[in-house]
Amino acid sequence: MAIREPAGSTHPPYRFADYASTRLRAPTQAPLLVPEFLPGGTGPAPASAALSPLDADLTRNGRRNGEPIGERIKVTGQIVDEAGHPVPGALVEIWQANAAGRYAQPTDQHDAPLDPNFLGAGRCESDASGRFGFRTIKPGAYPWQNHPNAWRPNHVHLSLFGPGFGSRLVTQMYFPGDPLLSLDPIFNSVPEDARDLLVARFDLAQTEPGIALAFRFDIVLRGPEATPREA
């Protein structure tokens, strides 16, 4: 039984045949719609008091005895809701493979080198205008077992807590011009007219001359029921 997506949805379906892991993990029954599920606008706002500026600089936060290997990049963007209002105070967490396409997670068995100076995890909070920014290393592509000769395109994972339970989002940011995109079932699970929303733009204005290239990735969270109330 197929679960139908609402018209205009940008989200992938639960079950997507080309992505093999959905076969046993996607729910088969449509989610139940429950009115008044939650009091409006509330949701977890995980304490961010522990954040430090170093958390947003992945080129520094995993150093042991030198600099991480790879292309330094900045990833910046603005978080807004569906009405276009900035979303301040959103917790943004990112994680990614290193320049060689290897994650720090021990369960990653890809035969590519770990970088002793790169962890690949960071976090920050969006500012009053909904803006966020990271400095990191451009992640490498890596093979996976989905189908013969399958490779994931370069990507950065993102997790966002907006102001309401309904605005929770976990997604992946891709890079423009990547030839692996059109071959990737996870990217292709998104409706065709929404795939561009997952591809960052090269952003010359944000580059740091001599230091780092820059990519811009703007994010739209579900809302506006999730916007903070006016004071």
Partner: peptide
């Protein structure tokens, strides 16, 4: 109206 950023698997 801005369109929601699509979800992707957590991996």
């Amino acid at each position: 109206m801005p369109r929601q950023t699509p979800s992707q698997t957590i991996g």
